[in-house]
Amino acid sequence: MHHSPASPLQPAVPRPKHKGSAQLFENPVLERLTHTHFAAPVTIFLLTAAVSLYYGLTRNLLTGVAAFGLFLAGLLLFTLAEYAMHRFVYHLATTTPARTKFQYTMHGVHHEYPKDKTRLAMPPILTVFVASLLFFLFRFVLGHAAFGVLAGFVFGYASYLFVHYSLHVFAPPRNALKWLWHHHAMHHYTQESAAFGVCTTLWDHVFGTMPRRRPR
Rank of each mutant, 00 (worst) to 15 (best):
H3G: 00
P5W: 08
S7V: 02
S7Y: 02
S7E: 12
P8R: 10
P8A: 08
A12L: 10
P14D: 09
R15P: 01
P16Q: 02
P16I: 00
K19I: 05
Q23T: 15
L24G: 11
F25D: 05
N27P: 08
N27H: 14
P28C: 13
P28G: 13
V29N: 06
E31W: 09
R32F: 14
L33F: 14
L33K: 08
T34Q: 11
T34W: 03
H35R: 15
H35W: 04
T36R: 10
F38D: 00
F38R: 05
P41A: 12
V42L: 15
T43M: 15
T43D: 11
I44D: 13
I44V: 15
F45V: 00
T48H: 13
A50R: 12
V51P: 07
Y54N: 13
Y55C: 07
G56I: 01
L57F: 10
R59C: 13
R59G: 07
N60R: 15
L61I: 02
L61A: 10
L62T: 04
A66E: 15
A66W: 14
A67I: 07
A67T: 08
F68G: 11
G69K: 09
L72W: 10
G74V: 09
L75W: 07
L75I: 02
L76N: 08
L77F: 12
E82H: 11
Y83K: 06
A84G: 09
H86F: 08
A93F: 13
T96I: 12
P97A: 07
R99D: 02
R99T: 04
Y104M: 00
V109K: 01
Y113E: 04
D116F: 03
K117L: 05
M122I: 15
P123T: 03
P123L: 04
V128A: 13
V128T: 05
F129E: 01
V130W: 05
V130N: 03
S132E: 01
L134P: 05
F136T: 12
R139G: 00
V141C: 10
L142W: 09
G143V: 03
G143S: 04
H144Q: 03
H144Y: 04
F147N: 01
G148M: 03
L150P: 05
A151S: 15
G152Q: 02
G156S: 11
A158D: 05
Y160M: 11
F162A: 12
V163C: 12
S166V: 11
L167V: 06
F170G: 00
F170A: 11
F170C: 06
P172I: 04
R174N: 13
N175R: 05
N175M: 04
N175V: 06
A176Q: 10
L177Q: 12
W181S: 06
H182I: 04
H182N: 06
H183K: 03
H183C: 01
A185K: 07
H187S: 05
Q191I: 00
A195L: 02
A195D: 03
A195M: 01
G197W: 01
V198I: 14
D204I: 00
H205R: 11
T209Y: 10
P211R: 02
